[in-house]
Write a protein that binds this DNA or RNA. Structure first.
Lengths: 229, 229, 229, 229
DNA sequence: AATGAATGAGCTTTCATTCAT
DNA sequence: GATGAATGAAAGCTCATTCAT
């Protein structure tokens, strides 16, 4: 039913899956077929996103992924492990799209805006919002899981941004005492009025490109007015 | 075991509960005794906060609240409704402590800082963080619940802030085109580096008064540098 | 279907169960109603006896006992514990019927025969044979369970017998060097040709009173010819 | 891990298995290769002995036997049939070692002791104890299996013994009315205090040669004192 | 009106068996 | 002919909800 729903894997999964029959080994070892693994993860993603960790049942995932229960348990030891593996995928996606946006060495304002647009786009996307919800929802019972999610995800992005800001401080273009705090401020300014609304379901669709760019630009301008020398 | 844990209701609940026997009507209609209702909500709050919606069992709540299962079902139709009612309580608390902080008419910077400190303190408190986690965790399955939570909670705070800012814009002390966006920016600047960390469990203790004041002050200063005429 | 099958409890259970309604407390604490406990044990006994430990399913027991699954788990923590409790019952039965047979102080031959008849009757009974089969069947995986069963059951009987024999040795009526071994010999002689046949299912019905008495008498005579002074 | 464990087949199996490649037909019909059949039975024996019938999984047997699941199902229709075939093997072993011990024509006492030592040694051995446990454990559900096991095993030994005793009765050296019962008595006296202990796991190691000889000797002496003319 | 014992659907996970390769 | 990945029924157990007391 929810197969039309955007999935974390949808962008990358197909390349593997659509390899021609001839290319594929005729028989793969148990738990070794990446296409099947992908298929399970996609189903699991849809179900977890929709129901949360606890309310998602392995039967739901079975149905949604189109594989048998036994097969899931060959690829993943438990429901929890399946979910953890799913989170790792989220992170890959989250970063792949953002990395290169930080490499621009041109105008500071432009660079920040480009990066902000990329970051805000990812973090407010359906996929990532759902992932964050699930992880936040289990934070009380499985603190290490959500901590990991944050530390390997948002925190790493934060570190990249901070390095960029530090470079501009060193170059004398920015006047900031506490660059850590300033980085957090910038990150929040990127998504002002969007992040929480998305998380709480008050903004049902991901924000449009225009809204994102407008918000990010306004945020960057606040940031620069405050900190630019 | 978790009875020492801070509860949303703890501050207000007891007044009702401790009314002397003599004051109370000798027998109340089923589901009509507000003290018992309160008692159930307190227990439910402790359990939901600790376990999340799904992992919390009605037996846990029974034990924690000290009432029988049947009684809970007289006061609340289902686990889900009990949780919804609980959320309404969160909102009351969330606002009671913040309202008056906005009434100060003195210096703009001072007013914003005082309000920010109050707001950030509440939103990063254990109780409210847990509540937000639970609500976010079920946002996919029960969208109206989390939407309500946000709209009657954060959004209302937002509206109050915006009114204050609008007044200062009108008075010519601030130069802002889009006051809605600016308000979101200010709200996010209040809690930069704290909100997400708390939500994801990366900051285990609520931030200290000092950290809150420092963060809020820095945020207000960024805001004012950007928008003060 | 197997409700007509003799059950360990059948002899004793009914007294409790058939107490008049008036005698019974109107409501018993969870897991505290002895009649219900009995009912579960009876059902479990029938199922375990027929299927063995592993092949018996909790659903089967549920059906056979006429209680719900939840109820069983209120009375017993797990399938294994249910089975262990069942074994304790077997032991009670096993001993209750045998104790007094050892108290006779009259003629040695008569005393031994009476005791042997009681012991052989119990050990070759349907109930006890089934219990032994189940316990032996899990001896490899749950060694402590079967060891316990033997030590608190047969071994204790052995000890009682040995005390009797020791008394007669001390009185000069028997001439035995190794009374431990002699006791084992006597115990085996009581059931020669019956015990193994019953255990392996080669003797489908419990031996008749006559066969038991004949076998025991022959065994006691062999024993006395060998050891009587 | 259990490959060092003594196996019923270990003594006989290898001859078939180690036939050189050259000797073997290059391709056997499905389910027709006796070496492979042997290999499966060996693995199954190790697994069944250790786990009992129910807890043993076909995957365990697959691993232990080093053949694929499909292959097992070519040679044996089901887990149950595999187990039945295994039991037939036990019987062969049980007898091979005992036969010749009965052929001695010399002194009666010596002959009985030699036979008793051989019989008790086999029956209390790890392998045979485990086999008996498994068979007894399923006796209720598969009565014919355990009956067969007993009738073709212990019972046949019983018949051989009885023939020997009958000869001595005929020769006037023994004075026995019921030689069938006497034979059972002798068989039990051979293993007094050892058989049950082994079966219930109370004697963890097989009894030493010395203990066996001592027990058998004591048993034979009781038997002869009772029945020798 | 309040209780909590009882219910049974539904959970995660295992494993005998099949069949495409 | 042999393989082992895939299947799905069924296992032990939990818990939201009901209802006799």
């Amino acid at each position: 039913m929810s197969s039309a729903r955007p999935s974390v894997m949808s962008s990358t999964a197909t390349t593997d899956v659509e390899m021609t029959e001839a290319d594929r080994p005729s028989r793969l070892a148990a738990g070794q077929d990446p296409a099947k693994r992908q298929q399970i993860l996609e189903g699991a993603n849809r179900v977890f996103s929709q129901m949360g960790f606890d309310a998602a049942s392995m039967n739901d995932i079975t149905r949604e992924a189109g594989v048998s229960k036994g097969t899931i348990y060959v690829y993943f030891d438990s429901k929890e492990e399946l979910f953890l593996e799913l989170c790792n995928h989220f992170r890959e996606i989250l970063f792949a799209d953002i990395y290169h946006a930080l490499e621009s060495d041109g105008d500071l304002r432009e660079a920040l805006i480009e990066f902000g647009v990329a970051l805000a786009g990812v973090i407010t996307s359906d996929v990532v919002v759902r992932a964050q919800r699930v992880v936040i929802g289990v934070a009380e019972r499985m603190p290490s899981m959500s901590r990991d999610f944050y530390e390997r995800g948002p925190k790493r992005g934060q570190a990249l941004m901070r390095a960029l800001i530090d470079r501009h401080v060193a170059a004398g273009r920015l006047d900031i005492e506490d660059t850590e705090l300033a980085t957090y401020q910038l990150a929040d300014l990127f998504m002002s009025g969007m992040f929480k609304k998305r998380l709480f379901g008050c903004m049902e669709q991901p924000p449009s490109k225009e809204l994102i760019r407008k918000t990010v630009t306004a945020g960057v301008d606040v940031f620069l007015k405050a900190y630019q020398r």
